[in-house]
């Protein structure tokens, strides 16, 4: 009995310690989904407006970048631009490009828009916000300043916001057109089927993906469903071993 309690407590404590040592940050596209984006003030075209004022006019796609980025921001914005050009006109939404670097001002953002040829496109807004911490916390984005490289360590994140301000979908990384259109449909409150692909952290996946054939095969997760019945058979076998030899009818 003492051993069981000791083992149980040890597992609990070790687990708690392991948890406490974690970074507390996950690159998960499910993080913050269906939560409301912070209603921050955003500055563009020489005016300061609220984000809620913007999304209440229609769904918005937020792209988080900074102008001095020497990494993913440029290819990321280029791909968003290309995807927007290819998307059906009735599916297109406004793209709000927000800098998360406090050094960026309206001048830098204006020059960025000109560089991409989007300065006169009504579908694109290049903005800054004095409340960037609130905004990035509310969407689950956590850039980390790397003082050696003088760059932010960050992922490319696209956040879909519907007309009520809820985050309906997030896309991390440079994503293909299908993923992009699924984001555009989701911010119009269309239900999008999704199923996370098996990855190395998902030990008991119901399917294993074969990249050579491109097909899913049943995985260990489905086999795990047999376990309760098998263990119950063992329990029944063990319990029935104590059957009294002498019938007591």
């Amino acid at each position: 009995m003492f051993k069981s309690i000791f083992c149980g407590l040890s597992i609990f404590c070790l687990g708690a310690v392991a948890r406490a040592q974690g970074p507390g940050y996950v690159f998960s596209e499910e993080d913050k989904i269906y939560q409301k984006v912070a209603d921050v003030n955003i500055a563009y075209d020489g005016e300061v407006r609220s984000l809620s004022g913007l999304y209440s006019q229609g769904p918005v796609v937020i792209a988080l970048i900074y102008t001095r980025c020497s990494g993913v921001c440029n290819p990321f914005l280029l791909q968003v631009k290309e995807n927007m050009l290819v998307a059906d006109s009735d599916e297109r939404s406004r793209v709000l490009v927000v800098s998360f670097d406090p050094r960026d001002g309206s001048g830098e953002m204006r020059r960025l828009a000109i560089r991409y040829g989007l300065d006169n496109d009504g579908g694109w807004i290049f903005a800054t916000t004095p409340q960037i911490s609130e905004l990035i916390n509310s969407v689950g984005f956590n850039p980390v300043w790397d003082s050696v490289r003088a760059q932010f360590d960050h992922e490319a994140l696209l956040v879909g916001i519907n007309d009520e301000g809820f985050i309906t979908r997030k896309l991390t990384g440079l994503r293909d057109f299908n993923a992009f259109t699924s984001l555009l449909r989701s911010i119009r409150n269309e239900f999008i089927l999704s199923y996370p692909l098996p990855n190395e952290n998902m030990v008991f996946s119901c399917f294993s993906y074969n990249p050579e054939t491109g097909k899913n095969q049943p995985g260990t997760g489905l086999l795990l469903l047999l376990l309760p019945a098998l263990l119950s058979l063992v329990v029944v076998f063990v319990l029935s071993r104590r059957h009294d030899r002498k019938p007591r009818f």
Binding site: R19, Q21, Y195, N201, M202, G221, L224
Partner: peptide
């Protein structure tokens, strides 16, 4: 999953099957 800090994630389909099992 709760204690793994993201190093172990569950399969939503498996979890739903087990929940209703």
């Amino acid at each position: 999953e709760y204690f793994s800090s993201g190093s172990f994630v569950n399969d939503a389909l498996l979890m739903k099957n087990l929940t209703f099992f």
